[in-house]
Simulated assay, not measured.
Amino acid sequence: MRLYLLARNPTDSVTEGFLPAAARLGLDVTVLTDHPDAHRAVYPDVETLECDVRDFRAVVTRISTHHRPDAVFSNSDHLQTQAALAADYFGLPGKDWRAALACKDKAEMRRRLAAAGADTVWSAELTGTGAVESVAQAAPYPCVIKPREGVASEDVVRVENPEQLRTRAEEIFARRPGAVLVVEEYLPGELYTLETLGDGKLRHVLGGFHTELSPPPYFIEERLVFVPAHPEPVVGQILAQLDALGVGFGACHTEFVVHEGRARIIEVNYRAIGDQVDLLLTRLLGFPLFEHILRTHLGEPLPADLGVRQGGAARLEYPCADRAGTLTSAPPATELSVDGVTLTYRPLRAVGERHELYRTNRDYVGVLRATGTDQPTVDRVSAQFLAAQRWEIQP
């Protein structure tokens, strides 16, 4: 059976998750990407073809002139709509392209939720600096400005008044010519995630995470703590909003806040959670997450019982660069077991690399994954490990 996997840059989810899972399922894999050299350098034995994967028409043509597909899949934020359209063209299982588009387009997501009566958030789009003044005068403060189709908290910033909104909008437009920005009311509350897996008929809730962010005005995810089960009323509210968006096939990673018992979506990433959290979930929950995701795209129904292991505790930490410069010293990749806690540390930036300060997830220098059975012990062991490490950045 032939799996076409659409990708842009290589990711840990594909390299360590989906490609090994495809091999275990006996699938022939063809990677379609607009960065072929980068993928061939990471996994030279996997067939990789160059393709403008941002254009669904180019994807259809590339597949049509190659081998017959049995599944078309992507775990990229940028390519869910294209993968869904291509799968539909070939009569294969996949996501509804309308739902994929509504999740990716943050302004359209707000419109669809409001039209369905699921949630209403004040928001407006900026297509250029000429529209900034009217939006600055109408917006409720504080509010958040962000790219309509952005990822990884890039150029997402909280603003407190019209002057800040004007300044931030001009800065972002200068960095992103032609971009469309969304300005929306700031939603207060603690930030959480909900991880779901469905086959279009059956949907499993895998739990979620409590996310700790950097101080305002930025929104860098610095720490995630596993939540085995959110309160039922909270889960019910989020699932109702996902239903309004048409989300229910494959993996979905939803970010939301809870304030005074009300759960409101921040954004929907219609793919598996990334930044190595999906790798942690497979170990923590003890089930083949990546295989199940691929099986749904092959048309196989999910089992009523996934066999998920109960009683686990987990934490992820992302040490971040606090300045621009060259990383001159950092800990190596490490695997440890301490007091019943399994620690996995992976560098995300090589010693000798120079970077600017991005105020996004691109500031991560490493990731620590910790799993165990007791949350206080997991927290203590994680903190002790990180306190013993050193990351040095020179201007």
Rank of each mutant, 00 (worst) to 15 (best):
residue 306 L to Q: 10
residue 341 V to Q: 15
residue 259 H to L: 08
residue 117 G to D: 00
residue 15 T to W: 02
residue 229 A to N: 11
residue 116 A to P: 11
residue 234 V to S: 07
residue 52 D to I: 02
residue 359 R to I: 02
residue 386 L to A: 15
residue 265 I to Q: 01
residue 210 H to M: 03
residue 18 F to Q: 00
residue 187 L to H: 02
residue 301 P to I: 14
residue 338 V to N: 01
residue 251 A to N: 07
residue 187 L to E: 01
residue 216 P to D: 15
residue 179 A to H: 05
residue 196 T to W: 10
residue 165 L to P: 04
residue 245 L to W: 15
residue 244 A to G: 05
residue 354 R to Q: 14
residue 108 E to A: 13
residue 161 N to D: 15
residue 61 T to I: 00
residue 9 N to L: 15
residue 113 L to A: 10
residue 128 G to W: 01
residue 322 D to I: 08
residue 237 Q to Y: 09
residue 360 T to R: 05
residue 85 L to S: 01
residue 214 S to R: 14
residue 77 D to T: 00
residue 350 A to E: 14
residue 158 R to M: 15
residue 390 R to W: 00
residue 100 A to W: 10
residue 204 H to K: 06
residue 139 A to S: 03
residue 61 T to F: 01
residue 41 A to Y: 07
residue 329 S to I: 04
residue 296 T to A: 00
residue 257 V to I: 10
residue 291 E to R: 03
residue 341 V to S: 14
residue 239 L to D: 03
residue 295 R to S: 00
residue 193 T to N: 06
residue 221 E to H: 07
residue 143 C to F: 07
residue 244 A to T: 04
residue 58 A to K: 12
residue 341 V to Y: 13
residue 346 R to L: 14
residue 205 V to L: 01
residue 218 Y to Q: 02
residue 345 Y to A: 06
residue 136 A to Q: 13
residue 253 H to L: 07
residue 309 R to K: 14
residue 323 R to N: 01
residue 78 H to W: 13
residue 317 E to N: 06
residue 198 G to I: 11
residue 234 V to H: 08
residue 58 A to V: 08
residue 284 L to M: 08
residue 273 I to T: 10
residue 44 P to H: 12
residue 226 F to C: 08
residue 95 K to A: 14
residue 170 E to C: 07
residue 378 V to I: 11
residue 253 H to V: 08
residue 309 R to G: 11
residue 82 Q to M: 13
residue 183 V to I: 05
residue 118 A to D: 09
residue 40 R to H: 11
residue 97 W to H: 14
residue 8 R to I: 10
residue 226 F to E: 08
residue 306 L to G: 09
residue 122 W to V: 06
residue 187 L to Q: 08
residue 28 D to L: 05
